[in-house]
Each structure stands twice: as C-alpha cells, then as structure tokens.
Amino acid sequence: MKGGSNVVIEPHRHPGVFIARGKEDALVTLNMVPGEAVYGEKRISVEEGENKIEYRVWNPFRSKLAAAILGGVDQIHMPPGSKVLYLGAASGTTVSHVSDIVGPEGLVYAVEFSHRSGRDMLNVAKKRTNIIPIIEDARHPHKYRMLMGMVDTVFADVAQPDQARIVAINAQHYLKNGGHFVISIKANCIDSTAQPEAVFAGEVKKLQAERLKPQEQLTLEPYERDHAVVVGVYRPPAKNKGE
C-alpha cells in the first residue's frame, strides 16, 4: 500500500467494482475525477498508452457498502448506468464511490439532513456531475420530489429507529416496481436493549409489511459491530403460476 508500489487491478464480481492486488488486496473504484481524493484515500494510477486512469481505494472500515461487498453480498444492484437514491449520505465518502460505480451515465440522489455534513457532501457533488445533493429530511420525501426521478435502487444508511418506515415511504415515492433496496441496519440505533438478532428480525418483518421483500441479510462482522445489511426487492412482479 506504500506510495510507488506496484499493483495489478482486476475486475471484481460486482459490476463497476475492481480489486487491486499487491502484497495486500484492496477494493477500488474507477475515479471519475482523476487526480483528486475525496477523503484522503489512497489512489492508484494506471497508464494505458497515452491516457491515464485512476482508481481510488475503498476502505471497508469507513463504508458499510464496501464492508458488505467484502462480506460477500450476492448483489448490490448498482451497475454502471443505474440510478440510485442514497439516504443518509453524510459527508459523501461512500457516495463518491457509488458515483464512481454508476459512472457518468448513472445518477446518485444523495439525501442528507444534517447541514454540517451536508456541506462536505456538496463539495463532493461539485466535482462529480452525477451526484444530486439533497439537504432534506428523508422522512418527508415529497419535499424533494422536484429534484427526483424514478430510481432503480435505494440505499439507506440512516441509523434511525424508524428506518424501515423511512425506506418504505421513499420506495413508495421513487423506487420502480421490481427495483431493489440495500439497507444497513445498526442494532444499537433501533433498540439498544434487545439482542441484535431480534432487532434485525423485527426490522425485516417491518420491511415485509411494506412490500419490501428481503432476499438476503448479512452481518458486517469484522468491520462493524452489530450491523446488518439487508438486500431485497420492492414489489416484485408476480410469478406466473398457471403457465
């Protein structure tokens, strides 16, 4: 990982994600803005003849999505060119990587309530044309309806007791039928007294009641404590039984 050392970059199983193999492996994404790091992360430059491209290292300890990918999640449902609604964007560190993954043809709607961290996110969005920053409460999706279109995937990392309801209400507004959701659940934020497993099960029940059908759940164990990521589909098309 030292500056100047050589690595080999290979495509990851997930579209838009790459692995840098050296003495240590690292998850990387193709930098949309070559020459700039967003939060002081390491960069890898590749010279292909004349044109230079750059990759940014994605730290799983700082990003739940990266942790989920390294944990072996089956699908993240954000291939290049897709539109993603990102709830709980914070300072825009993970958002910058999602923007790398969806590429110039994709879009990331980044919603953050806090002005303090929203400011940092705005600075990230200034450089990246595919991020639409929204400083608004995710509990009231109608307030930012003027900025939004239908999205393919909702990613939520809001850490609120009513997280399931927030995701459901946003899905009702903006998620297409058969679109997917990826939610990171922090057990402590929902019920700090109950067992984490019980909290996760309760949240999954709540999601199911809102027609958000969970397909996969995994813990982010070595990277985060008592966190789970739930991946699923919203209003899946009915299966043909008669035919």
């Binding site: 080999v8 960069r43 890898i44």
Partner: peptide, 13 residues
C-alpha cells in the same frame, strides 16, 4: 492468470 487486468502504481500524497 487473469484475462482482463491493468498494472498500476499507488500515488503518494
């Protein structure tokens, strides 16, 4: 051996 790959270098900041 991988089919698609690139050889890069860490940039020092």
């Amino acid at each position: 051996l991988p089919k698609y790959f690139q050889v890069g270098k860490y940039v020092d900041s």
